[in-house]
């Protein structure tokens, strides 16, 4: 690693003040620390968010689950009030990773194969920062790209709990990231389907499936649909055509398992 200073503020206000310039926010660090070790980043200073008590914890009010940005995956997994989300959290990485990695870090990084972005987009979640609230539809802009400004901190993610939901991940077994993951949520405003792991554009909605599932929330509603392989990820784990096939299969499984 290159040399850098590290600061551990205890309030959001202090953290916001410490960020800016070449300073970098550090949440659970399960992606950032390996990146620093590989010398792929050289911040002057890391601003750790894990000592900020007001960014930790889970609360529920009026059918909306609010999760602090520095809340680790293990705590979301243990919560259970939004079952599909807790199940998703319980299958990120491994137990030690889940004890450090955070939801705020995951959505801010927007890895194209991460699980949380699919949940946020399918649920119609709101990303809360230290300065504003951003709808998930406007937040995820592409591979590793979000609407966050320099120095902006994800302080919470708010999930309206849907009527039914399920997440299906086809695991890339070495990394345990999604080779393809599909989150299906049936909300009062209609069905939303979000796909991760598959596209060069990162997490995205499959609107054709949403229309079909709005007409009939059944696996058979997907029968006539095909997924284009255009702009899907090609790597040694799978071709674009393979991923296109998996999107439909995993969507069907999620519809079937939704509860």
């Amino acid at each position: 690693m290159y040399a850098f200073d590290i600061e551990c503020p205890t309030t959001i206000a202090e953290a916001a003040q410490a960020l800016g310039g070449e300073n970098q926010a550090l949440s659970g660090g399960q992606t950032l620390i390996p990146t620093l070790k590989a010398r792929l980043a050289s911040p002057e200073k890391l601003v750790s968010l894990t000592a900020i008590a007001e960014m930790k914890g889970i609360s529920s009010a009026g059918g909306v689950l609010s999760i602090g940005g520095a809340t680790c995956h293990a705590d979301v997994a243990a919560d259970g009030s939004y079952k599909a989300l807790s199940e998703l959290a319980a299958h990120i990485g491994d137990p030690a990773v889940r004890n450090r990695g955070t939801i705020g870090g995951s959505v801010a990084n927007n890895d194209p194969a991460a699980c949380y972005p699919a949940a946020a987009l399918a649920s119609g979640a709101t990303i809360v920062t230290n300065t504003r609230e951003i709808a998930a539809d406007d937040f995820f802009l592409g591979m590793f790209e979000t609407a966050l400004e320099e120095g902006e901190i994800v302080t919470a993610v708010k999930f309206p709990i849907p009527e039914k939901a399920n997440y299906q991940k086809f695991v890339q077994p070495a990394s345990r990231f999604a080779l393809v993951g599909v989150f299906v949520a049936k909300t009062t405003d209609g069905v939303r389907v979000a796909v991760t792991g598959a596209s060069n554009e990162g997490v995205h909605r499959w609107t054709a499936a949403e229309e079909a599932l709005n007409a009939s929330f059944a696996v058979s509603a997907l029968d006539d649909l095909t997924v284009s392989a255009d702009n899907l990820i090609a790597d040694l784990h799978g071709s674009p055509e393979y991923r296109a096939h998996l999107i439909k299969v995993m969507t069907g499984r999620a519809v079937s398992a939704a509860s």
Binding site: C8, L26, G29, I33, P34, L46, S48
Partner: peptide, 8 residues
């Protein structure tokens, strides 16, 4: 995968 400072 954690800094010593964070374990303060």
């Amino acid at each position: 995968t954690m800094f010593a400072t964070e374990a303060n």
